[in-house]
Amino acid sequence: MHGVKRTRVSPEAAEAKRIKEQSKIQAYVALQDDVLASKRAKEYTVEALGKTNQLLDLNPEFYTIWNYRRNILTRGLFPESTPEEIVGLLTGELRMTMAYLRVHPKVYWIWTHRMWCLENVPLGPGESKGWRNEFWKTEFMIVEKLLDADARNFHAWSYRRYVVESLPASFSPARSPADELKYTSKKIESNFSNFSAWHYRTKLLGKSWAEITPEEVADEKDQEFELVTQALWTDPGDQSGWLYHRWLIGHNPSPQVLARELESIQELHKEEPDSKWCMNALAHYHLLSARLASASETDVTKHRAEAKTILERLEVIDEDRKERYRELASHY
C-alpha cells in the first residue's frame, strides 16, 4: 500500500507466524468437526449449545450452526424449561447476537436469529404487560440506537421495518406510518445521502398511497418532490436522491408532473453541466416523455434527439460506462 512503511520480517518470524496460523486453522477445523458431529447425533444439550458458541465466536456467518443452535433450544432446552427459564435463555441469545452485531453488523444470520428469538418469547402473565411486549419494547429502543450509531446501515433499517411491523397491539406508544415517515424525514434531512432512509420511505408511502384517493396521492407526491429536490440541489452528485426521484416519477406519472420535473432538472443541469446523475435523469425522462400516449410526433422526435445528445455526452463524462450509453444512444 502507498505511504505504508514496509517492515522486513525475518525467515524465523515468518515461519513462527505460519505455524501459529496453521495451529489456529487446525483448532477451528477440529471444533467445526466436533460441532457438526454433535449435530448429526442430534445432541440437544447445554454442552452442545456451548460448543456452538465457540464456533460462532470464530465464524458468525456459519448459518448451519445457527440452525443447529435453534434446534438445541426448541428440541432440547425449551421442553425441559419453565416459561421464566425460556425467557432467560432467549435474553441470553439476544445479548449474544448484540455482541456479534457490534463487530459484524452486516451478517444476515445474526439478524435472522434475533428475529427468531423475538418470535419465540412466551406469552407471559397478562395481555398488556406480558414478556413479549417488554421484549419488543426493548428491541425498538435497540434499533433506534443502532441507527443513531450508523444511520445508513441498510440491515438495521430492514430490521427496523420488521420490528415496527411486528410490534404487539399493546405496544406503547403505537408506531403509525406517519410516525415512521417523520423518522425517515429526520434522518434524511440530517444526511441527504442516506439511501436506506429513502428506501424505507418508498415502502411506507407505497402502502399508504394504496389506501387513499388519487387526488390525495398527488398532493403527497408534490410534497415528496419538494423534499427530494432539496436533496438534488444540495448534492447532485449523490445517487440516493436521484433514485428516489425516479421512483416518484415511476409511481403512476402524469404528463404534467413529468414535464414539470423535466424542466426542474434542466435548470439544475445548467448549474451542474457535468453531473452524470443529472444527465442520466434527463435522458431517462426525455425517453419517458417520448413514450407518453399524449406525445405528438414532433415531441417524440424532439425528446429522442435530446436523449441521444445527452447519452453521447455521458460517454465522455462517465467513460467507465461509455459502452452502455453508446448502446442506448444507438437506438435513437
Rank of each mutant, 00 (worst) to 15 (best):
Q230A: 09
E139D: 06
K106Y: 09
L147K: 04
L94T: 02
L262F: 12
K302P: 00
N67S: 11
L118H: 10
K207W: 01
A295R: 04
S166R: 02
S166D: 03
P177I: 06
L243A: 13
L287Q: 08
G88K: 07
W247P: 00
A295V: 07
N71A: 15
L89H: 12
S176D: 01
E189I: 12
D320N: 04
A307V: 07
P214H: 11
P125G: 14
Y325T: 03
S170L: 12
E84H: 06
H104N: 13
H303S: 08
R114I: 08
S10D: 10
S38H: 10
Q256I: 15
R70H: 12
G76T: 02
A13Y: 05
K137N: 07
P168L: 06
R324T: 06
P79Q: 03
F140C: 00
R160Q: 01
T52Q: 06
A174M: 07
K145V: 00
E43G: 05
V29S: 09
M279A: 14
F78Q: 06
T64N: 02
K322L: 07
S330D: 04
S196W: 02
V143Y: 01
K145S: 05
A210D: 04
L232R: 00
D235K: 04
E215G: 02
R304T: 10
W116G: 02
L101A: 05
